[in-house]
Amino acid sequence: MTEGNFVDYVKVHLSSGNGGKGSVHLHREKYVAKGGPDGGDGGRGGHVIVRGNKNLWTLIHYKFKKHFKAGHGEHGSKNRSTGADGTDVYLEVPLGTVIRNTETNQVLFEITEDQEERIILEGGKGGRGNWHFKSPTNQTPRYAQPGIPGQESQITLELKVLADVGLVGFPNAGKSTLLSVMTSAKPKIADYEFTTLKPNLGIVEYRDFQSFVMADIPGIIEGAAEGKGLGHYFLRHIERNATLLFLIPADSNDISQEYQILLNELKKYNPELLDKRRFVAISKSDMLDEELIQEMSAELDKDFPDTPYLFISSVAQMGLQELKDKLWQLLNE
């Protein structure tokens, strides 16, 4: 999937259907001169319904079509016939989509299960026909209820990527390279910062035909929680990942400091992110010799004793199987 096709934020305008009018009709047939009122009820207007679809990965189908209108209910007719209900409109969304009111930014609900349906706008109720209003003192009412008009609203669809493992790191840390080596994904790779502008997903094949999903998320910079760099456009994707894999290059000036900056940005954005399982991978380790790896390991044991880490190299295929084992173990704890 190319970057231009990954759409994770759209605004759409919705309208539910109007209810049909109740009928004003007096029954007439041969030999029945005054059959009384028999006007039927109007049909309800169509609902606007959001439905989860596990086969969708993006909101690209709402990139160019942004207005959705449900059908109106039909009017009632004679012989107490109720008008047909208006046609419902379904908005198919990928799992992990959050629905907000655009004006208030309030979260209405989120879709996390396949075929889960939520009515976002109800259609107007149909009006009652005149036969409902007959009484001993008013045996031929010549009035009925009009239908209730539908509703209008503008909503924001916001996709948070559902993945088992999320890659977290500074720009140019080697996240896209690792994803391309461990999965069949083909992310854009280059030697400049912010090569990745949209999340990329890949399926990591594990032993015995098992697999898990890994997400490459655009790089974090200091101040991302306040909106610097790509800010909130990518931090929300991390909320859906079960395990966070921090990727820090071996040639970093201070690995521990870089790790703390990344943790601080996640904490400022959402403190609950620190409750997720974490693992640190020291990338580009093919440039280190065995003695240097031992020295760095001794320092890392002191700096973050509670977080497991591993030296890897995507290019040299170093430590990747062990990394898969560690991640699988974390995911199944």
Rank of each mutant, 00 (worst) to 15 (best):
L159A: 05
A250Y: 03
Q329Y: 07
S285Y: 03
L56N: 02
A84K: 14
D216M: 04
G45L: 03
P218L: 05
V107Y: 01
K54H: 12
G43A: 10
D301Y: 10
N5V: 00
G52H: 02
F209E: 11
A33V: 02
Y269W: 09
K66C: 06
K30M: 09
T2Y: 09
E290C: 05
V168I: 14
E117Y: 08
E122I: 00
Q294E: 12
R240V: 00
A84Y: 09
T2K: 15
Y259H: 14
R277C: 05
R80G: 07
E265V: 03
D306G: 06
K134Y: 08
E193Y: 09
N79D: 09
V161S: 12
V24C: 13
L121E: 01
N332E: 08
P199W: 03
P141S: 08
K188Q: 13
P37G: 10
D41N: 15
V168Y: 12
Y31V: 04
H67Y: 06
A144F: 09
R277S: 12
L162N: 13
R240K: 15
T112K: 15
I238C: 13
I189H: 05
E290P: 00
A84M: 06
M214G: 12
L300V: 03
I248M: 07
D301H: 14
F246I: 01
K65G: 03
M182C: 12
E299W: 04
T195V: 11
E113G: 08
I155D: 01
S252K: 08
E290F: 08
A225P: 03
P271Y: 08
P171A: 12
D301L: 13
L56G: 06
I99K: 05
K175M: 07
P149V: 04
P305A: 06
V107G: 06
N241I: 03
Q106F: 06
Q317S: 11
K69D: 00
T307V: 14
K186M: 11
H232Y: 06
V12Q: 07
S285E: 01
G19M: 02
G46Y: 01
G39D: 01
G229D: 01
R118N: 09
I220N: 02
P305L: 04
L201E: 01
S15H: 11
I111W: 03
Q260C: 03
L178M: 07
E291Y: 12
R118L: 02
A70H: 04
V93W: 04
L197N: 12
E92V: 00
H232N: 11
G19H: 11
R80H: 14
G22A: 13
A190C: 07
K188S: 11
T307S: 11
E3I: 02
L56K: 14
V48G: 02
I282A: 07
R44Q: 13
F133Y: 15
K175A: 04
E117G: 05
T97H: 07
G319K: 09
W328T: 05
E299I: 02
E205K: 10
K175W: 09
